[in-house]
């Protein structure tokens, strides 16, 4: 108000509006200083990984892990991908990569199909006991996996799936169910019930409503689920170790076997290239998906 009344007389003498805050006040220096320092801690490992993986072994031995390579070489990457050894196999991480791909793809698809249909049934087609099962499901996600490891071994063995790809897919589907069901259930509950009722009046059934209304209206949450599952399953280690055989080991398991193997001379540059290769898929998913990733983990963590 004061500005408005004075602006007439002062129009020619100076700038208008409130005095702008100086960008470089002590508070801002502190604030951004701390944030930059913190970011250094977060960035450092990625930087070190990339730099080490681009150096030759002599340079790694001589130099500083933070320094950029004097002479860039992609040999460690090639070696990590194609010829690094685990035990008797010397075909590199590529085997683990493709194993992880053939594990992740069906696991993600199956778990999302089951959880989305389940979440839809829980919201729009409640039946007696459905809420009880859902509560057990959510509580079940807090039970340590260790307690269910062996019973699942028995179940899979009985089904003839122990040590096979599909056994592991099933395990990922089971353990992805609580979080995904919660995700879909919460999302579907935000879709106006009138839509559902209108479709019912028009004679659409369970699957008709799912495919023609729920699915097209919920594509964002399917993307969130996709992000959650791809990173989660790709990063799994325990289930990979327990439920598959060495020739089917996912990438994380193989990576650990390559890096932490006791035999031979340690090739740190190859190790870092291998580590980076394994982290690449979730990192790409993360950087491409941006805010949806945040939304996914937040939705997973804080319900509603």
């Amino acid at each position: 108000m004061a500005d408005a009344s004075m602006s007439g007389s002062l129009a020619m003498t100076g700038p208008r509006g409130a005095k702008p805050k100086r960008a470089l006040n002590p508070r801002n220096i502190m604030l951004y200083g701390i944030l930059l320092l913190v970011c250094l801690y977060y960035i450092l490992p990625l930087w070190v990984m990339i730099m080490t993986s681009l150096k030759g072994m002599p340079e790694v031995r001589l130099g500083n892990i933070f320094a950029p390579p004097v002479e860039i070489t992609f040999e460690p990457w090639v070696k990590a991908w194609a010829t690094a050894c685990t035990g008797l196999n010397c075909d590199g991480l590529s085997r683990g990569f493709w194993n992880s791909v053939i594990i992740t793809v069906p696991s993600v698809i199956l778990s999302i199909i089951i959880a989305s249909v389940n979440g839809y049934a829980l919201i729009n087609w409640k039946f007696k006991g459905s809420e009880v099962f859902f509560t057990i499901l959510i509580f079940g996600s807090f039970i340590p996996y260790q307690i269910m490891l062996y019973p699942i071994v028995i179940l899979l063995r009985e089904a003839g799936l122990y040590g096979t790809l599909w056994g592991l897919v099933l395990v990922h589907t089971i353990f992805g169910m609580p979080i995904l069901t919660l995700l879909f259930r919460n999302y579907f509950s935000s879709i106006p019930e009138e839509l559902f009722k209108a479709a019912r009046v028009d004679g659409a059934g369970f699957w008709g409503i799912y495919f023609r209304i729920m699915l097209p209206m919920s594509l964002p949450i399917f993307v969130v689920a996709l992000i959650l599952q791809v990173t989660g399953i790709w990063n799994d280690f325990l289930f990979g170790v327990v439920y598959t055989k060495p020739d089917l080991y996912p990438m994380t398991v193989q990576l650990n076997n390559i890096v932490n193997s006791v035999q031979g001379v340690k090739e740190y540059n190859v190790n870092m290239a291998a580590t980076l290769l394994t982290g690449m898929v979730p990192l790409v998913v993360y950087f491409v998906s941006g805010k949806l990733f945040v939304r996914g983990i937040a939705a997973g963590a804080v319900k509603g």
Partner: peptide, 20 residues
């Protein structure tokens, strides 16, 4: 920057820090 480590597995995390 602060959230990207969360996308990585514990195996990758552990191996990087083992090296650092």
């Amino acid at each position: 920057i602060m959230l990207y480590p969360f996308a990585l597995s514990f195996i990758v995390t552990g191996l990087v820090w083992q090296w650092i």
